[in-house]
Simulated scan of single mutants.
Amino acid sequence: MGTIAIPQLSRAPSRRRAMPGFGLTLGFTLSYLSLIVLIPLAALAIKAAGLGPAGIWKVLNTSQVINALKLSFGGALVAAAINAVFGSLIAWTFVRYDFPGKRALQAMIDLPFALPTAVAGIALTALYSVPTVPSPGQGWLGVPLEALGIKVAYTQLGVIVAMTFISLPFVVRTLEPVLEQIDKQYEEAAATLGATRWQAVSRIVFPALQPALLTGTALAFARAVGEYGSIIFIAGNLPNLTQIAPLLIAINLDQHEIGAATAIAAAMLALSFAILFGINLLQAWVRRSERKAT
């Protein structure tokens, strides 16, 4: 009798990924984030919790701490809003137009990234301060502004100026790639249908920029709220007036008041998380609205 051949079921070739699998990459991600971010923040929360609710409230419920937190977060929000407007205009100019000196200006935008914050603070102070004795290289803008009744150095306005300076690149560099990907044909089609330039920008370009604009604004806010070096020189560090929360933390550490410094830092962490979480919710709402519209 002849043998009956049993057909072999061919197995589909397994699809091997070029990069490591999900389990390995997820494990590495969680481990790295835990070591760099989660564990230090958890240690901060545990240290602050050791004071107890009454101890934390005693530290935070002072005019000096409240005013410092108001200045840090309020100034950061104002600086982020300013950069959201003018950073968008700068990104639009860099992407849509060619002009002499464009590359030099683009390099200047990145200076706050590379420049030591202390150098930025000294430069801003020299620019906006009004020296009691005339000195070359100082007061170039401070003297004419004070003649107009505007004082920048050693005021809350100076704090906002410093925050705006160091956080501008985040908005510009976040918007530029998105602007480069927007097809100009949609704007040209809108123009042929009779739309004005403002209508084309507001109804075609701006909706596409909203997620990136919110991201850049959030990054600018986060950078400004934690800034220290460039602000302490131009602020003057007057308690209840121009003293920022990071400086107050440093002062408490110098005085070996570890508990007070930890409580202020934990308050900054909670406020920052709440604001950034709200911005992320707004981003998600914008994306859902865009999907429904399409």
Rank of each mutant, 00 (worst) to 15 (best):
123 A>L: 15
32 Y>L: 06
148 L>H: 01
138 Q>D: 06
66 I>Q: 11
60 L>P: 00
101 G>H: 02
115 L>V: 15
145 L>T: 03
71 L>N: 01
150 I>G: 06
77 L>G: 05
73 F>C: 07
106 Q>P: 00
119 V>R: 07
64 Q>L: 15
148 L>Y: 01
120 A>N: 01
128 Y>G: 02
31 S>K: 02
50 G>I: 00
42 A>G: 09
105 L>G: 03
79 A>C: 15
98 D>W: 14
142 G>V: 03
84 A>G: 09
134 P>H: 10
67 N>W: 13
150 I>H: 11
101 G>V: 02
32 Y>V: 04
141 L>Y: 11
77 L>M: 15
52 G>T: 01
93 T>N: 13
123 A>K: 06
132 T>H: 03
91 A>C: 11
97 Y>V: 14
147 A>I: 10
106 Q>A: 05
43 A>V: 13
70 K>M: 11
82 I>N: 01
137 G>D: 03
78 V>T: 15
65 V>R: 01
73 F>A: 02
59 V>L: 03
65 V>M: 13
58 K>Y: 03
94 F>Q: 03
79 A>S: 15
116 P>G: 14
34 S>M: 09
93 T>M: 15
64 Q>V: 15
96 R>C: 09
95 V>S: 12
39 I>N: 04
50 G>N: 05
57 W>S: 05
99 F>P: 01
119 V>P: 10
115 L>D: 08
34 S>W: 12
52 G>P: 00
104 A>K: 05
84 A>T: 06
100 P>Q: 00
98 D>N: 12
40 P>N: 07
38 L>D: 01
126 A>Q: 11
91 A>G: 08
68 A>I: 08
121 G>C: 07
103 R>N: 11
96 R>A: 14
62 T>M: 02
39 I>Q: 10
36 I>D: 00
100 P>D: 01
42 A>V: 05
81 A>R: 03
71 L>D: 01
48 A>V: 00
54 A>K: 00
40 P>H: 08
40 P>D: 04
128 Y>E: 02
72 S>G: 05
74 G>E: 04
85 V>H: 10
53 P>D: 03
86 F>P: 02
91 A>R: 07
36 I>F: 08
109 I>W: 12
44 L>F: 12
118 A>R: 10
64 Q>G: 03
127 L>Q: 11
46 I>S: 13
143 V>A: 11
93 T>G: 11
113 F>T: 10
126 A>M: 15
69 L>Y: 04
67 N>P: 02
96 R>Q: 14
109 I>F: 12
129 S>F: 14
54 A>D: 06
81 A>Q: 06
40 P>E: 05
138 Q>R: 13
116 P>M: 14
64 Q>Y: 09
85 V>R: 13
54 A>E: 02
140 W>T: 14
120 A>R: 02
48 A>C: 06
124 L>G: 08
89 L>K: 03
99 F>Y: 10
136 P>M: 09
139 G>I: 05
105 L>F: 15
36 I>E: 03
111 L>R: 04
54 A>Q: 04
142 G>I: 05
95 V>R: 10
122 I>E: 03
119 V>Q: 08
126 A>L: 15
31 S>Y: 04
76 A>Y: 13
64 Q>P: 01
146 E>M: 09
146 E>F: 04
39 I>A: 12
124 L>V: 09
65 V>W: 07
62 T>H: 00
110 D>F: 10
65 V>F: 04
62 T>V: 02
